[in-house]
């Protein structure tokens, strides 16, 4: 359990991680807002939908279902399927918390899960803590909501060039989360290469390419992770060694970024 004075430090660390995430969110939410407007949402409705849901693909599906007069049951089923990866991420985060972690702490960390907050929480050394995740979420989610509202009300005022450039910020953050571990662990590098290839292939395979991106993501994530768990399982001792390496590496990275 962290000391009290550490909590504000952890929170600020979360805020710092949340700023680039929020900037990327703003750009992506902007394009989500343009879609939401077409589906009949006004800026206020888009704002609260984004503020409380903070899930990109899931929201897109929800918005389009509303326009298509989908029932609430359809909405529940499709939202659950599209966001199935959050369950996987939730298990991965809980895996990092020792036995005896209070249920409240576990639930608060789970509440903060988005693709990006999950990745910065996983990349961070030490046990996942709600102080860090809330710092990130409370910084990034309002920007996600603001981006949606601005996208709905301003539509296409921003120059296309700026929108195009901003749209890769989010992917830059993904890359920054997966490359350093790939450098340390060849199995991870291999898994990433296979993921790239399968993800690309699935966009072109008849049948699979018609699934929603959330569904495709879930199927691929389960399939490839299971494959690697079988062909390149992690040995327990290797586990410990890697964790040590990871901690050393991350500390280096932190010092660098603060200088």
């Amino acid at each position: 359990m962290e000391l009290k004075e550490n909590r504000s430090k952890l929170y600020i660390e979360g805020v710092k991680a949340g700023i680039p995430i929020g900037l990327g969110y703003f750009a992506v939410a902007f394009s989500l807002g343009i879609a939401a407007r077409d589906y009949g949402f006004n800026a206020f409705q888009g704002f609260i939908a984004s503020l409380f849901t903070y899930a990109s693909a899931g929201q897109y599906i929800g918005f389009s279902l509303y326009a298509a007069n989908g029932t609430l049951l359809t909405l529940i089923v499709l939202t659950a399927i599209t966001n199935l990866r959050y369950i996987l991420m939730g298990f991965a985060l809980n895996q990092g918390m020792p036995a005896g972690t209070p249920l409240g702490t576990r639930m608060l960390v789970g509440t903060c899960i988005t693709d990006e907050i999950f990745s910065v929480t996983i990349a961070r050394p030490g046990i996942p803590t709600p102080w860090f995740t809330f710092g990130a979420l409370l910084t990034a989610a309002p920007m996600w909501a603001a981006g949606t509202a601005v996208g709905i009300s301003m539509g296409s005022i921003l120059p296309a060039r700026i929108v195009s450039a901003l749209s890769v910020a989010l992917f830059g953050m993904f890359i920054a989360s997966i490359i350093p571990p790939a450098r340390k662990d060849r199995a991870v590098a291999f898994a990433i290469a296979v993921s790239f290839a399968c993800s690309y292939a699935c966009e072109h395979v008849p049948g699979i390419k018609d699934f929603s991106s959330g569904t495709r993501l879930t199927i691929l994530a389960i399939g490839i992770s299971a494959l690697f768990a079988v062909i390149m399982p992690r040995a327990d001792e290797e586990d410990k060694k890697l964790e040590e390496l990871e901690e050393l590496g991350e500390t280096d990275g932190e010092v660098r970024s603060e200088n």
């Binding site: 298990f91 895996q95 036995a99 994530a221 992770s225």
Partner: peptide
């Protein structure tokens, strides 16, 4: 508490990297 099963542990280890890689490319 953390899962002990080797397959499940390995699976959860790969999930984040695989998920983010798929979303990127």
């Amino acid at each position: 508490k953390p899962i002990e099963n080797r397959f499940a542990k390995s699976f959860l280890y790969y999930v984040p990297y695989v998920t983010l890689a798929i979303m990127t490319f």
